[in-house]
Amino acid sequence: MKIAIKEDILKEEDRIGAENRREFLARGVAAFNLIGSPGSGKTSLIEAAYRELGGELAIGVIEGDLASDKDTVRLRNLGLPALQINTGRGCHLSPLMIKKALPEIDLAALDILIIENVGNLVCPVSFDLGETAKIGLISVAEGDDKPTKYPLLFREAEVVVLNKIDLVPHSDFDREAFYSGLRAINPAIGVIEISCRTGEGVEEWGSWLRERVSSPAGR
């Protein structure tokens, strides 16, 4: 016999994500889900945010990695409160992992929580962690075709950060191709060009965060 169900497969994940969102709102924290490839500069981007805004806004970090606490140690050495989640075989952070981590973080003391997802342009996009906004990070070294190849991230992200722009003259990265690919996927999305290494664009990155924090509700 046929049993009609018609239920969202990820409804339980989405329910927990919504719980996290209410918690962030109640504590007045803007949470950012930072998604990018391994080596795109996610941790460097967080360091840049801290250097730019550390004096005025309280920033905390959740680090998602398959293994190791290398990034967490790196951020703590800068003075940033950072909590490590190791996902083992898991290629993305789940809403439940975040929910379990939240009691270990003094949310009320924070203005910004940056959640560095596992390095991956596909899987993390499917899970709503309860974030205020998703930030898509790609770097020049990865090539200009990434928006076309990984469209969902560039649909879901509120802003795209293009890192390592100091490498443009040394690579085949075609800015025009990058922008036309990106605009086909998400015509209205903002792009911040940055080099965490030289500091170019870091001010704009800081301004974007500052502005976004002042209106943490909705997207």
């Binding site: 016999m1 046929k2 049993i3 009609a4 169900i5 018609k6 239920e7 969202d8 497969i9 990820l10």
Partner: peptide, 11 residues
């Protein structure tokens, strides 16, 4: 979409 539509089974 990402949903469970229906099942076929025996009771």
């Amino acid at each position: 979409e990402l949903y469970l539509d229906y099942l076929e089974g025996k009771g």
